[in-house]
Design a protein around this nucleic acid. Structure first.
Ligand SMILES: [Zn+2]
Ligand SMILES: [Zn+2]
Ligand SMILES: [Zn+2]
Ligand SMILES: [Zn+2]
Lengths: 133, 133
DNA sequence: ATTGACCCTATATTTACTTCAGGGTTTATA
DNA sequence: TATAAACCCTGAAGTAAATATAGGGTCAAT
């Protein structure tokens, strides 16, 4: 299977798939006689796994850790638990911050909806105001 | 005022403040005779404004646009409105994605809390499972 | 034989900083 | 007065996670 085929099949871009190979997230990629990359079921499984991990916000570094547990089925999964728990914690912190950001943006958004001079703009006036100091 | 002082006063790191000067987000920085940077109220105001913008998730590029409205008080603020509205839209999209991520992570988190072999781990089994294909 | 659709490598660009290497200056103290 | 700690400088490289670009090879069809 050529790179364009597996890109279609998995939803990753061609460049991303080549990048993942360079990062050793996609492994054991074969080559055709003409030097084109050759992919099989193993690489599809790898990319599916990567996609699952991306969907829960893991970094490529963290994905590698989980891959090592895939490859060492006898390893203890404590590290896996911790990784997921810490990812969840990070996501919740991000959510909290984003919620605050949303509130503030929503407020700003309400301060001006006309087209006037910037120095009379409610948004600019609010942003110009010193806070938190 | 030296860079360490303004760093303390504004909460930005020294390196970040130098970086912002290079990016022309902080402007008109003076110099002492010994070549040390010299900051005043103008730079404090600039950094306060930058902080406000960061708090609502704006990029440095977007901050520059808002700065140009500060510097041109007669400019029409339509661009400001649009920028804030589009930032709000982006934040809401991010929130939606993060909420889904949280759900999935929370589910994964419930699948294992013991310490066993990875190939029997509920988390790993779930991640290994092909979905969305 | 030439076009268009693919594929290759290597390098550069992006964002927003952070870190590092290799210095000079100022201030406190012994 | 010497010296060490604390602070400042520049320029370059590193970070994450791709994306884009330059320059060129391969393949299928017309
Ligand atoms: Zn919510
Ligand atoms: Zn306005
Ligand atoms: Zn097993
Ligand atoms: Zn487990």
């Amino acid at each position: 299977m050529k790179i364009g085929d597996i890109a279609n099949k998995t939803g990753f871009s061609i460049e991303t798939i080549r990048f993942y190979e360079k990062q050793n997230l996609v492994k054991n990629v074969g080559r055709h006689i003409n030097n084109y990359r050759d992919y099989g079921d193993e690489q599809i499984a790898q990319l599916v796994f990567i996609k699952q991990c991306r969907n829960i916000g893991l970094s490529n570094k963290e994905i590698k850790i989980l891959q090592s547990h895939l490859e060492n089925p006898q390893s203890e999964c404590g590290e896996v638990n911790q990784l997921i728990a810490s990812a969840l914690k990070k996501i919740r912190e991000q959510l909290k911050l984003l919620h605050e950001t949303e509130l503030q943006l929503n407020y700003l958004n309400s301060l001006c909806n006309h087209n006037g001079a910037s120095h009379e703009c409610g948004i600019m006036n609010e942003l110009r105001t010193t806070r938190h100091f």
